[in-house]
Design a protein around this nucleic acid. Sequence first.
DNA 1: ATAAACCTTAGAGTTAACTCTAGGTCAAGC
DNA 2: GCTTGACCTAGAGTTAACTCTAAGGTTTAT
Lengths: 140, 140
Amino acid sequence: MKTYSIGEVAKELNLTVYTIRYYDKEGLIPFVERSESGVRLFKESDIAALNVIECLKASGMPIKEIKNFIDWCAEGDATLQQRYDMFMERKATVEAQMSELRKTMEVIEHKCLYYQTALEAGTEDIHKQENIAASIPGSR
Amino acid sequence: MKTYSIGEVAKELNLTVYTIRYYDKEGLIPFVERSESGVRLFKESDIAALNVIECLKASGMPIKEIKNFIDWCAEGDATLQQRYDMFMERKATVEAQMSELRKTMEVIEHKCLYYQTALEAGTEDIHKQENIAASIPGSR
DNA sequence: ATAAACCTTAGAGTTAACTCTAGGTCAAGC
DNA sequence: GCTTGACCTAGAGTTAACTCTAAGGTTTAT
């Protein structure tokens, strides 16, 4: 079976070798086998596992919690419920992050328009003037 | 004009007083005035500014870059272009984060289904079996 | 066969963003 | 007048997630 070195895996996943060794130290990839001389030999399935780890990380999960999941995986079918619950919870937090991001986006887009108008006018005062004008009844 | 104490502002924005003082130390809120005895007096507009800061933070901008923006604001109309460019760039990075999150969500949803099926079957092997069956031509 | 380019570990260092402590001031209520 | 609680500063401590260094072993290409 074909295997990959830590450097190859790092390049493929856009990680540093330091990061992968750090993950190993933290117990995220206990299943990676070694050559007789101690060199890590990554299988395709190990790379797939690292991709799942990256996904969990992207969802905001801290490394220690990812380790819990990895431990559960090693324990087999007895932990299926925990793992299911974990992914359902992840789904909820990612949904929350998305709605948070949408709110952030709204404010940013509003600011883009604000500065576009100000740039066109050559001054930020345009917005103050607008508000003053708008606040005087019958001003137009 | 009504003002608010750091404790009131912290409660309203769901921050700690430590965090707000830290922001002040980092130069994010140089416009907040003080009483004669040195107590911070937050105006409504200061709270609005903190909301913008929170928005930039939520967009992933580091505190030092937020400080650049605050400095630009103090410099007036000469920096309108920089500020416009900054928000346009923010918009792009938030869009990138959203598409990243969508990809993450897809993987997580896939995993939810995976574990749901496994739970129903009582074993994760169901997925291995499925693949083996699917790989044998004429097996159904 | 030897140099270059990998790999290994243990452990120290870095960075960002808080978070807290110590020691003090101040304003309000009893 | 004195206690209580909220404010102040300077600076130390924390945490997560890397990131790197030192010292050495291994593999590969000429």
